[in-house]
Nucleic acid binder design. Structure first.
Lengths: 110, 110
DNA sequence: GACGCCCGCAACTGTTTGGTTGCATACTCT
DNA sequence: AGAGTATGCAACCAAACAGTTGCGGGCGTC
């Protein structure tokens, strides 16, 4: 079964889990208490997130803390980069257009 | 039916379509020719992408050109921003740690 | 107007997914 | 060792999804 980061963030519940554990690792029970979902549902999402390596389990006694692998988020950032270039170049084009219009205005004044 | 940009990019075929039409609008047939998929399969993905407003159809004669709404990509960028802050702060912490180690080294030399 | 493209829509199929329920395992505390 | 807690795993279900097939409606050319 091939999973990727994009599938991981496709589900709103999973995005909520990611946001929740971003700042500090949490246990499945603690996560489930934070929004109205059953522990088992959270557990299934955590399994998927673990498979995607977005999240890493850390056993501490009888509890398992799940920690966000922030580096995986960078993968999305890298993928987005190709489009960032496009919207930045569009912005530059708009900028060029605006300055051209400004120049025309100036020339007409003369 | 609620769709969002994250569902749009969850499917690899859809990411390929997005990448394909990023630079210039294309028709469903033209898109389908670019990778081994049927026209109808592409058409279904385009419908989902249209519902997510990632893509906009433009009728020209009997052809329909699909154009990428690059601004929708910015939404992902904005969502990613909260995590970007985290990994940047981690990097800074690492930096602080390194300079501290460096200082200790210096002090020991004295 | 008739034919040939380009395309969306509806019906159908096999697969995946999100969620629930029940059970087994492992650790902690007394 | 026994009770209680934290958790994963398998089985099951309904809904969603990706893809195929067939059909009908525009548009353009002859």
């Amino acid at each position: 079964m091939k999973r990727d980061i994009f599938q991981a963030i496709a589900d709103p519940t999973r995005r909520a889990i990611i946001a929740l554990i971003a700042l500090q690792a949490m246990t499945p029970n603690a996560i489930a208490e934070n929004f109205n979902t059953s522990r088992q549902a959270v557990s299934k999402h955590l399994r998927i997130l673990t498979e995607c390596e977005v999240v890493t389990p850390e056993q501490r006694g009888r509890e398992i803390y799940y920690r966000l692998e922030i580096d995986k988020m960078k993968e999305i950032d890298e993928w987005l980069d190709q489009y960032r270039k496009i919207w930045e170049s569009r912005f530059e084009q708009l900028d060029v257009l605006l300055t051209e219009l400004q120049q025309e205005k100036q020339e007409r004044k003369i």
